[in-house]
Simulated assay, not measured.
Amino acid sequence: MTTLCVAKHFSSYPGGRFKRISEFSGEEFRDDFLAPAIRRGDKVVVELDGVVGYGSSFLEEVFGGIVRTMHWTDREQVNKHLKIESSQESWIFEVNQYIDEALECENSPETAQKKAIR
């Protein structure tokens, strides 16, 4: 199991959604920290505490984005690879909303059609 503490391993001041827009972006955390740990086969615990705060764009890009990147289609796949920890229940709730929305999108007929074309 790998633990990624956003504040300790990344930044106490998480930025916006994309690398081209801000330093310490959600895209950077997902691509450079979270996805590589998951690809190694580890279950990854992401600790959200210790930061000044999060923008919704950061959280959506990290957690909705990891669902899209890994092409996960159900909660079982998410729970096999990812655990979110925080003393802030609102952050966990928000992260889970982004995961659920991304899963819903991955299971949509439009997404299935795009996958069939690939």
Score class of each variant (00 low, 15 high):
75 R>I: 00
53 G>D: 14
48 L>A: 10
35 A>T: 03
63 F>M: 03
52 V>P: 12
85 E>P: 04
49 D>P: 09
107 N>H: 06
113 Q>G: 13
69 T>Q: 02
63 F>N: 00
117 I>K: 12
81 H>T: 04
67 V>I: 00
51 V>M: 08
2 T>A: 03
109 P>S: 14
53 G>R: 09
109 P>F: 13
39 R>P: 07
42 D>C: 05
42 D>H: 06
71 H>Q: 11
1 M>T: 15
14 P>I: 14
47 E>P: 13
35 A>G: 07
81 H>R: 02
101 E>V: 02
13 Y>C: 10
68 R>K: 09
8 K>S: 06
29 F>E: 15
40 R>P: 13
89 E>D: 11
62 V>H: 02
60 E>H: 07
97 Q>L: 07
80 K>W: 00
27 E>Q: 14
30 R>K: 15
95 V>W: 09
13 Y>Q: 09
38 I>N: 00
79 N>I: 00
52 V>E: 12
30 R>C: 01
94 E>V: 05
56 S>R: 03
79 N>G: 06
90 S>D: 04
44 V>W: 00
20 R>I: 12
102 A>N: 13
1 M>K: 06
61 E>P: 00
95 V>L: 13
116 A>P: 09
115 K>H: 11
23 E>Q: 12
68 R>A: 03
57 S>A: 06
65 G>S: 04
56 S>Q: 12
44 V>Q: 08
37 A>W: 13
44 V>F: 02
97 Q>D: 13
26 G>N: 01
98 Y>E: 15
97 Q>T: 09
65 G>N: 01
107 N>P: 05
42 D>E: 07
83 K>W: 05
96 N>P: 08
112 A>I: 09
7 A>K: 10
87 S>Q: 03
27 E>N: 10
78 V>W: 01
78 V>C: 01
100 D>N: 14
93 F>H: 15
81 H>S: 00
54 Y>E: 04
106 E>I: 02
76 E>R: 09
83 K>L: 12
55 G>E: 08
70 M>E: 07
59 L>K: 07
13 Y>G: 09
84 I>M: 01
22 S>C: 13
31 D>S: 04
104 E>K: 06
99 I>P: 02
1 M>C: 04
23 E>H: 11
12 S>D: 12
44 V>N: 06
33 F>Q: 11
82 L>G: 01
45 V>H: 06
39 R>Q: 05
52 V>G: 06
110 E>H: 14
57 S>K: 05
77 Q>K: 00
6 V>W: 13
88 Q>I: 03
56 S>L: 00
101 E>Q: 05
36 P>H: 05
47 E>A: 06
27 E>M: 08
73 T>E: 14
66 I>R: 00
75 R>H: 11
33 F>P: 10
